[in-house]
Amino acid sequence: MKPPLIAASALLLSACASQTPRPPTDSPLVVAAESREQIWNGVALAEDGRVFVAGPRWTGTRGPALAHLDADGKPHAFPDEAWNAWTPGGDAQRAFVNINAIHREPDDSLWVIDTGSPDFGGAPLPGGAKVVRIELKSGTVSRVYPLGADIATPQSYVDDIRIHDKTGYLTDAGRAGLIVLDLETGAARRVLDNHASTLAPQDRPIRLSGQTVKAPDGSVLRVNADPLELSADGQWLYFASLHGPWSRIETRWLRDASLSPEAVASHVEPWADLPPTGGTALDANGDLYFSDLAEDAIKKRTADGRIETVLVDPRLHWVDAPYLTQDGWLWLPVPQMDRVALFNGGQGKTTWPIQLLRLKVR
């Protein structure tokens, strides 16, 4: 699959106060798309190379919550306008309230994680927290998995998903824990609630440009269970708070509903001491690509545990969930999350335009 190059000049509207640093002439980064209206924290590519982007409502993003970028880089609501038309007071069950992540599976299905709350840290609206499956070939929603109040609790921020066979595994960055979703029955269970492996540690703050990121209330921002990956055979789930370090557990223990919380917790193992990261991508060889937030860098943890720096560049400032194509391109949304107004006393510090970058890694 050879993804199309999305025109970098698309979506350029009126100039903003700050500008993206000028790239060095020898940089391996390729600008795939830019926007002066939308903050994208997620990207996925269809089998035919179509590019999809999404971003959470609380960043101040305007435009569709989930969009397909055309050949000129212009966003179009996906799967349709209705799914992207939610407004306060509207039906939260059949519209996107707040998308935090998108994830494409090899069968060309796109999985959308809706936290269900339009506000950062707010309780999910009734029926709002959900997993939405979209068939990319037809552009239709094939199933909605509601996450009830016992799963997506008032303290929850359902974060991301990985899938193997008939099971989905999700992280909850609000109420620390994992969610196991049966994709056939739709039944969901919480596991590892408030376990050390899913809780944000007190001694690993998120720092960018030498500054500690603060929550809206002025306290140090702490993000519980956030990044996760599955081994290619589905045997191991790797996961962490945004801050690290990472743990792993065999998925058979997560799928066994007969086990007590203590029994499940006993199978958690330390895996990798990685720094705070905005997002990750795991390849079939077991190499994990991740953004090192403190260093504006993309790094790789090899299958044998070595850490290699792939690229350091000031434009890689809070790279969020990357997407790795089969032909070795790492797609990098750069939402600059620490610069949004929510984390800066209401004063946005985003360096415009927001960029979607590509980097050849193998």
Rank of each mutant, 00 (worst) to 15 (best):
Met1Trp: 13
Pro4Ile: 11
Ile6Leu: 15
Ser9Met: 11
Leu13Trp: 15
Leu13Phe: 15
Ser14Trp: 06
Ala15Lys: 11
Cys16Thr: 14
Gln19Cys: 02
Pro28Lys: 03
Ala32Lys: 05
Ser35Met: 11
Ser35Asp: 15
Glu37Ile: 06
Gly42His: 06
Phe52Met: 04
Gly55His: 09
Arg57Ile: 08
Thr61Met: 10
Gly73Ala: 10
Pro75Lys: 11
Pro79Trp: 08
Trp86Ala: 13
Gly90Phe: 12
Ala92Cys: 07
Ala95Arg: 14
Asn98Lys: 02
Asn100Leu: 15
Asn100Asp: 11
Asn100Trp: 09
Arg104Leu: 13
Ser109Thr: 13
Asp114Glu: 04
Gly116Lys: 14
Gly122Arg: 03
Arg143Glu: 01
Gly148Ala: 14
Asp150Trp: 00
Pro154Leu: 12
Asp159Ile: 02
Ala173Ser: 15
Arg175Phe: 13
Gly177Met: 12
Asp182Tyr: 13
Leu183Ile: 13
Ser197Asn: 03
Thr198Asn: 03
Leu221Gln: 08
Val223Ile: 15
Pro227Ile: 05
Tyr238Glu: 00
Ser247Tyr: 07
Ser247Gly: 04
Leu259Arg: 14
Ser266His: 04
Val268Lys: 01
Trp271Met: 08
Asp273Gly: 01
Leu274Lys: 02
Gly278Gln: 05
Leu282Lys: 05
Ser291Gln: 04
Ala294Glu: 15
Glu295His: 11
Pro314Trp: 04
Tyr323Gly: 05
Gln326Asn: 12
Trp331Thr: 05
Pro333Glu: 01
Val340Gly: 02
Gly346Glu: 04
Gly348Tyr: 06
Lys349Met: 14
Thr351Met: 12
Pro353Phe: 10
Leu357Thr: 06
Arg358Cys: 07
Lys360Val: 07
